Computed example of a mutant assay.
Amino acid sequence: MSVVIAGAGMHPWGKWGRNFTEYGVRAAREALQDSGIAWADVDLVVGGETVRNGYAGYVAGSTFAQALGWNGARIATSYAACATGAQAIDTARARILAGMSEVALVVGADTTPKGFLAPNAGERWNDPDWLRFRLLGMTNPAYFALYARRRMDLYGATAEDFAQVKVKNAKHGLTNPNARFRKESSVEEVLASPMVSDPLHLLDICATSDGAAAVVLTSADYARKHGIASPVTVAAVSTVTPTFPNTVIDMPLLATDSSALTGVPERTFKESIGQAAYEEAGIDPSDVDVAEVYDLSTALELDWIEDLQLCKRGEAEALLRAGDTTLGGRIPVNPSGGLACFGEAVPAQAIAQVCELTWQLQGRAEGRQVEGARVGITANQGLFGHGSSVILSV
């Protein structure tokens, strides 16, 4: 048995200041309309949790099911920080593969505050976010900058390379109706924007946004029997953790991909995520036609290109400079415009990537279409061992 994406929908991303449920309901209805499946036929709703939106956000599956109108569907809620949406998709897919569901609706939506995401208020000594923010001053842009410095030291990356990632993604997002920022940028504009955490400027770092995305999943058999047009196969969902030879269980975790572990890992965390996805899908990185990756900062996109084995270590800058990662290039990366154009709506962004790849593989990504795309991969990095990669194929 295989599981397919029968429909995809989004609420445009921006800074709307309304309840996250409103965004999620719109995305859900668009996904249902796209699939041709009635809400009454949905038997599972999986919501992506949003911790900033009160109790309704913590029980997002129930919140969306109620808002759409109680129909007797089972509900589930997933949280994995930026990998939340992929984990929600994995939950829905598992139930379909187990024969416990026929039609699943997966929804992620968020309303975010202005500025960089902050930790929970008060003294929270068991909260790793609070510890790294309050004790170390390690806000997200600070460790994005550490990644960037690492690339500069190891591979000779430059601030101009990072800026060029923004330029590329901004151009990709120009015609995307769901993108928040639809304006071209130049390298000079990026470098002239305020320095946030050296070497990253303001335009190197994604904003926080309101937004939503949703997909409808069914078995391939269900899609055939009900005449669903052009379904896209979910070939793999990877949410693996890294493997280390030794562990230390009494150390605090203070960064999003650090571990209380010693020794050299078999693969880096992000390499493990991509490799597990390839193995499950039974494909090779050379089979990938298009990628949607986690570009909270411009430098992170370059890392992900290598983590997903789309090129060798240290070669991402060369691909970028040659135009290979832009539309029309060998392996277009973030044709949607990425988070550079959308901003960060945490429980929605991994689902939004799947929406984009669905439209790409169906040939419906008007104005940003990757010609002949048949296999696409996503990548997200969540908090403290959470991460995800999804492979779709036709």
Rank of each mutant, 00 (worst) to 15 (best):
T91D: 03
L117T: 12
C82R: 14
T91G: 02
D127E: 12
L154A: 10
A163D: 14
T175V: 10
V167S: 10
L174P: 08
M100K: 00
Y147A: 15
D129C: 06
A67N: 06
G72S: 02
A148P: 03
D161A: 00
Y143T: 11
N120K: 13
F162S: 00
F116C: 07
D90M: 04
L154S: 08
C82F: 01
T63Y: 11
A145P: 02
I75Q: 01
T158V: 03
Q164Y: 11
N169D: 02
A157H: 12
N176Q: 11
N120I: 12
T63W: 13
G108N: 08
R134Y: 15
A121M: 06
L117W: 10
K166F: 07
Y79G: 14
T77Q: 03
L146S: 05
E102D: 15
E102R: 10
V167P: 13
A76R: 07
I89C: 14
D161Y: 06
L136K: 14
G173S: 01
A109Y: 13
R95Y: 01
H172C: 15
A76G: 01
G72V: 04
A109V: 07
T139F: 04
K171Y: 11
S78E: 03
Y155R: 02
A65F: 05
L136A: 15
R149N: 08
F116G: 06
G72W: 10
A98V: 02
E160D: 00
A104N: 13
A121Y: 07
R124E: 14
N71E: 06
T139V: 01
A81R: 13
V103P: 11
P113F: 08
N140L: 05
D129V: 14
Y143C: 13
L174T: 10
A121G: 14
T175G: 00
A65N: 05
A157R: 05
K166T: 11
G99N: 05
K168T: 06
A94E: 06
Y79P: 14
A73T: 07
F133R: 02
D90V: 04
E102L: 05
G156F: 04
I75C: 03
A163F: 09
P128D: 08
G137V: 11
A145K: 01
R95V: 00
R124T: 12
V106P: 04
W70I: 09
I89D: 12
A170E: 09
